[in-house]
Simulated assay, not measured.
Amino acid sequence: MSIGNGTGEDQRYVVWLDIDNTLYPRSTRIADLMSQRIHAYFLSMGFTEEDANSLHFKYYSQYGLALRGLMKHHEIDAQDFDRKCDGSLPLETILKPDPKVRKMIQDIDRCKARVWALTNAYSTHANRVLNILQLDDLVEGVFFCDYADPNFSCKPERDFYDEAMRVAGVTDASKCLFVDDNLNNVKAAKALGWGSSVLYSEREEGNAMKEHPHVEGVDAVIGRLEELRLVWKDIFVETSS
């Protein structure tokens, strides 16, 4: 599912940005807070601690999202899940805009590339994060998991990527430039022929920049989001130092 204007043909590249743990640091531990809420949701359904842990891991591994397993096997209300899990995260007190990330996205030459977000979250969470980070005005559209559809797809499934391309009006997979912190998601895009699939493996602030090891199935590995300037140098506006 998507929001934004993605109709018609366009010959420019499309930069696909993952949102969670990519546009903000993993050190915020939002993923941990989310995991705690999902665990609590399993417990609220009457599962024991052991079963909750087991099913959470099983559904995430098998379906890409624990929610999909819950929908397939327990007929839960996805909107209720979203409110109690993603919707209850205290994002406003944790996240803050990063001027370097904003400047990096601003410097993408819009004559050469469009910018979309590609997320396994629902639209409300995606928009909330982009608004807090003050990046919403730089993104043409967001392709997200449509929790209203009981059979929705997600990364790293081919249907998700194919539908994202269709909505964004992309017919040439080589025009897609993608960055994500999840190796399976990046490998899936690469296997589909996306032009550049980059793994973001966050490097802690203060660490010296060093060469990243080669990872099979991806085009590049970066430790800072701003390193996309080097990986995709042809789509960035030249700026004076």
Rank of each mutant, 00 (worst) to 15 (best):
E204C: 04
F178W: 04
L199H: 00
D180T: 14
E204G: 08
G206L: 03
G223H: 03
N184D: 15
Y200C: 02
V221R: 08
N184Y: 08
G193T: 08
A208I: 11
Y161S: 07
I222M: 03
A188H: 00
K210W: 07
V218H: 03
R203F: 04
V170I: 15
D180S: 12
V221Y: 09
D172T: 09
S201P: 02
D172Q: 07
N207I: 13
R166N: 12
G217D: 03
I222Q: 00
A191N: 10
A164P: 04
V198P: 00
E202F: 01
E211I: 11
D219M: 07
M209D: 12
E204P: 04
K175C: 14
E216K: 07
V179C: 03
G223A: 07
R203C: 04
T171Q: 12
A191M: 10
A220H: 09
V198Y: 00
V167I: 13
S174H: 11
A220D: 15
A164T: 03
D162R: 11
V198W: 01
L192G: 05
G206Y: 01
E216S: 12
K175M: 09
E205H: 10
P213W: 07
D162W: 07
Y161G: 07
A191L: 08
T171H: 13
D162L: 15
L192R: 05
D219P: 05
S197E: 03
A173C: 13
D181R: 10
V218G: 01
V170E: 05
D180I: 14
H212A: 15
E205C: 10
A164E: 02
A220S: 15
N185I: 06
F178R: 04
E163H: 13
D162G: 11
V221I: 13
E163L: 14
A189S: 14
V198S: 01
N182G: 09
S197Y: 00
D181W: 09
S201V: 06
V221N: 08
E202I: 02
M165A: 13
N184K: 15
S196Q: 14
N184L: 11
V170H: 06
A168Y: 04
N207K: 14
V198D: 01
L192P: 01
G193L: 05
A164N: 01
G206R: 04
